[in-house]
């Protein structure tokens, strides 16, 4: 069982107390009525699915019931950091061995 650090409770808690809620840092368009269908559809439905570092929204469902963000490696499941909503992640570098996005497109 993983131990996840809740930035609000400020201690490690058992994984079973948490739920993952998808990709983090997705700003809602300030004026939805001014969006094109494509812009709104992209905001609503399209999510990144990276191999490696990913910023995710989690909730401490059985604890303080607060949402927070986590930087997690989708390959190893290692959680590098958790941080409050509104804060910036400290870990953003691509993991060693990852294929740069541009290179992957050229192949």
């Amino acid at each position: 069982m993983l131990q996840i650090f809740c930035p609000h409770c400020a201690e490690l808690r058992s994984e079973e107390e948490f739920h993952a809620s998808g990709q983090a840092h997705i700003p809602r368009p300030l004026d939805p009525a001014a969006c094109t269908d494509e812009q709104w559809g992209t905001y609503m439905f399209f999510r990144d699915n990276p191999r490696g570092i990913h910023h995710e929204l989690w909730i401490h469902a059985a604890g303080c019931r607060q949402y927070f963000n986590a930087t997690r490696d989708t390959v190893t499941y290692e959680i590098f950091e958790t941080y409050k909503i509104g804060e910036k992640p400290q870990v953003t570098a691509k993991p060693a061995g990852a294929v740069p996005e541009a290179a992957a497109r050229e192949e």
Binding site: C9, R13, S14, E16, E17, A62, G63, C64, R65
Partner: peptide, 10 residues
Amino acid sequence: AVSTVFAKSQ
């Protein structure tokens, strides 16, 4: 005081 998982419930 903590809110947590207890006997499969909370």
